[in-house]
Simulated scan of single mutants.
Amino acid sequence: MTRPPAHRAVRRLRVAIRTTAKRDSGPCENEDSAAENIDAGLFALSDGASAAARAEVWSQLLTEAFVSGADPLASSTLSALRRSWRERVSAPDLAWYAKEKLAQGSAATFLGVRVDTNGYNVTAVGDSCLFHVSDRELVLVAPLTDWREFSRFPELVHTSPDNPVPLEHIWSGGGPARDGDVLLLATDAIAKHLLRQHHETGELPAILDHLGDDEQFTKFVAHAREHGLENDDSTVCAVWT
């Protein structure tokens, strides 16, 4: 695929990516993916659809393409990624039922964020969300803004060319960011939980205090699941500007 030259992010950024699978599932069963290119100011998150075939491969392809400088939603890039997905998941010795599922294709949400000296820009399909936090206050959340908007059927990026991404399904926006602000990319379970808590209390849960390492994040998620967080793969990418 053709990749434009990656720009340099002049801001001194810091990033933490944390993920944990569903309860009673192993890391290899986690269908979320996140990627970063801190030098270029590129960060991406994708949540593979649970009912889709090899969704973890598709979500990884989408995020890796974005942080490499490509636009995974551009028609030429998307076509190349679809071919890559088929090549990675195909094998001659697959069982017939596995081949049938692969024939149905895969799907995932997508969230890409570009940070530079002027602020940040967001491109999103589906219900993985960006939270812009400044001094512990929520400045912006997108593409969903209310926890009641989440459903079992988000918009998705599909591997099948029969399912293109309509322009109206692509959310784009952004804004300025001050030094010390945080841009938190979160897959749907975490995003919904944060928005619900913010709606009920006016404050976000202290998730940013629990990203020091994977163990801290896993404990935060386990505790949150006892207080309403849905049992789903949970992934965040926090960017400190």
Rank of each mutant, 00 (worst) to 15 (best):
169 H>S: 11
203 E>L: 13
203 E>C: 10
121 N>H: 13
184 L>T: 12
121 N>K: 11
154 P>K: 01
175 G>A: 00
192 K>G: 07
157 V>H: 02
126 G>D: 03
201 T>A: 05
133 V>I: 15
152 R>S: 11
134 S>V: 07
134 S>E: 05
161 P>Q: 01
204 L>C: 01
130 L>S: 11
200 E>M: 12
161 P>G: 05
167 L>S: 15
188 D>G: 04
144 L>Q: 03
170 I>Q: 07
127 D>G: 02
141 V>F: 03
155 E>I: 00
166 P>A: 10
181 D>S: 06
142 A>T: 12
127 D>H: 05
185 L>P: 09
189 A>C: 12
134 S>W: 09
128 S>M: 03
123 T>D: 04
142 A>P: 02
124 A>G: 03
181 D>P: 12
134 S>R: 10
135 D>A: 15
147 W>D: 14
199 H>D: 14
194 L>E: 10
165 V>T: 14
185 L>Y: 14
162 D>Y: 06
143 P>G: 12
120 Y>D: 02
179 D>E: 15
164 P>T: 09
184 L>N: 15
126 G>M: 04
127 D>V: 00
151 S>N: 07
120 Y>P: 12
160 S>Q: 11
125 V>I: 13
159 T>G: 01
187 T>C: 11
159 T>V: 01
190 I>G: 01
144 L>T: 03
128 S>W: 01
171 W>A: 09
190 I>Y: 01
156 L>G: 05
121 N>S: 13
183 L>E: 03
152 R>L: 10
149 E>I: 01
169 H>E: 14
152 R>P: 00
122 V>R: 08
185 L>R: 14
207 I>S: 02
205 P>K: 01
169 H>L: 05
201 T>R: 13
134 S>F: 10
157 V>S: 01
174 G>F: 10
193 H>N: 04
163 N>W: 12
197 Q>G: 09
165 V>P: 00
176 P>V: 03
155 E>H: 15
162 D>T: 10
157 V>M: 06
203 E>T: 07
199 H>T: 10
208 L>C: 13
193 H>L: 01
176 P>K: 05
195 L>W: 06
143 P>R: 08
175 G>F: 00
